[in-house]
Computed example of a mutant assay.
Amino acid sequence: MKPRTIISLEQALSLPYATLRFAHLGWRVIRIEAFTAEDGGLQGDPNRYVGSMVADSDRRSYFIAPNVGKESVALNLKQKEGRDVLHRLIKSLDADVFCCNTLPSRYKGLGIDYPTLKDIKPDIIWAGISAMGPDYPGVPGYDPVVQAMAGYMDLTGSADGAPTLMGVPVVDLKAGDEVYAAVCLALAERAETGEGAEINVSMLQAAASWQLTTLPLLDFGAQPAEMSRSGNEHRKFVPTNAYPTTDGYVFVAIGNDGQWKRLCDLAPFAGLARPERMTNEGRGRDREAIQAEIWALTRTLGTSELVEMLRQATVPHAPILTIPQVQALPALADRLTTTITPEGKRVRLQPKAIDRQGDAFHFAFPPRYGEHTGSVLADAGYTAADQASLRASAIIPT
C-alpha cells in the first residue's frame, strides 16, 4: 500500500498521538501549527514548551514522543491568504486525511470545516477531536476534565478517599485511537466507494464507551458500591489487590474459581480454603476477611519468592514495576521505538501498539516549530518568490 499523506492542525496530546500512529506506518504526517505576527506569545503547539529542554527551547521532553517522524508547517490561518495556502497544500499534495483538534466553533473561521475541504478535495477524509463533539462547539476539554466528566475519577482511588485522576492520560489516548481506527475504516471504505468521510470524535463519548462495566448497571438495580471507588480491589472478582511483600508489592488477580483453588493449593495459602469460599459469590460475601488474611500472608514473603510461587501455580499476578523497570522488561526492550537528538543522543521511546512485519522502529526527531514550512510549500508548487511574498504578508514566519 502506498504511503498516505495526512495534514493535521494539531496540538496537545490527543491528536498528535493519533497521527503518531500513522507516522509509525511510514505515512507522511504534516503538522500545521498556528502562526501569528503579533509579539509576546509562544508560537505553535503549547506542548513544545513543556518539560525539560531536550534539543532547544521549543522541543522539550513532553513534546518529543508523540511527534517523531513528522513535519511542521507554521501558517497563519486567521488570514484568508493563509487559509488559501492550506487548501492548496491539501489539493496539491493529494492529502488523504485532514485532522484537527481545535474547538468546533473555530472550524469554519479557519477554513478547516468538512464542507469547505470537501469542496477542495471531494474524497478527503476529515477527522476532528473535541471535548463533546460538534453539538457542543464551544466546550474546551483536556484529559483530566473529561476524566472527571466521564466518571473515571469517581471510580479511581480508595473507597474512603478523594476522587483521583488515572496515572495515564487515557482519555486523550482513547480519543486518538478512535481517530486512528475510524480513519483506517474510512480509507478502506473509500477504496470501494471513492467517497470521503467526516469523522467527529467526542472525548466524552469515547471515554464513556469504556464504561461498559458500570453504566449498564444503572438499569440492573446495582448497589452504589458496584459503581464507586474500590482502591486496588476489583468490584466483582475476589480476591484482587496489590499485596505487600517484604520488599515491595505484588498484584494478584483471581478471575475464576479454578485460580482460587490453585492459590489455596499453595502451602502458605492453604488456610484460606473454606467451603463457603469456593465460589466468587461466596468470596464476595467474605471479602474483607479474605483481603486481610492474604495481606498478612504475603507480607512475610519476598517479592521474587511470591512471584515464582504464583507463576508455578498459574495464578495471574505481576510485581508492581517502576517505569525504569518497565523499560527494561525483556518483552518490551527490543520493541521500543527510538529517535536521535540533534546532538546525536539515542533516545528510547514507547513501543508501538502492535508489531507489523517490515515496519520501522526508528523515527526522525520531532521538527522545530515551522521547520518544514519552506520545503512543504515548495512541494505544493510555491516558488521562492511566492514564499517571500507570504513572509512579507505575515502568513508564514520569516
Rank of each mutant, 00 (worst) to 15 (best):
K2I: 08
I6V: 10
Q11G: 04
L13W: 00
L15F: 09
A18M: 01
A23V: 06
L25H: 12
R28W: 13
V29D: 00
I32T: 00
G40S: 13
G40A: 05
G40K: 07
G40I: 02
N47L: 09
R48K: 10
Y49T: 02
Y49Q: 04
S52D: 15
I64G: 02
A65G: 09
K70W: 04
E71T: 01
L75I: 03
K78L: 06
Q79I: 10
K80A: 09
K80V: 15
G82P: 01
G82D: 04
H87S: 13
A95N: 00
D96Y: 00
F98V: 07
G111D: 08
K118H: 07
I120G: 09
D123T: 01
W126R: 02
S130P: 03
M132D: 12
G133M: 14
P134D: 10
P134A: 06
D135W: 04
D143N: 08
M149L: 14
G151I: 00
Y152K: 06
Y152V: 13
G157T: 05
A159M: 09
M166G: 13
G167E: 10
G176F: 00
V183Y: 10
L185V: 14
A186L: 01
A186N: 04
L187V: 07
A188Y: 15
R190D: 14
A191T: 03
N200E: 02
M203A: 04
L204M: 12
A206H: 05
S209A: 15
T214A: 14
L215S: 14
L217T: 05
A222I: 06
R229H: 13
E233N: 07
P239K: 05
Y243V: 12
T245M: 15
Y249R: 04
C264M: 02
L266D: 11
L266A: 12
E276T: 06
R277Y: 11
R283G: 07
E288T: 09
A292N: 07
I294F: 07
W295N: 14
L297W: 08
R299Q: 15
R299Y: 05
S304Q: 15
M309S: 06
L310V: 08
Q312P: 14
L321K: 11
P324W: 07
A328I: 09
P330H: 10
L332T: 11
L332W: 05
D334V: 09
T337D: 11
T337M: 11
T338W: 10
G344Q: 08
K345W: 11
V347T: 04
L349S: 02
A353G: 10
H362W: 03
F363V: 03
F365C: 12
P366Y: 03
E371N: 07
T373S: 01
G374K: 01
A380I: 09
Y382D: 00
Q387W: 08
A388N: 04
P397Q: 03
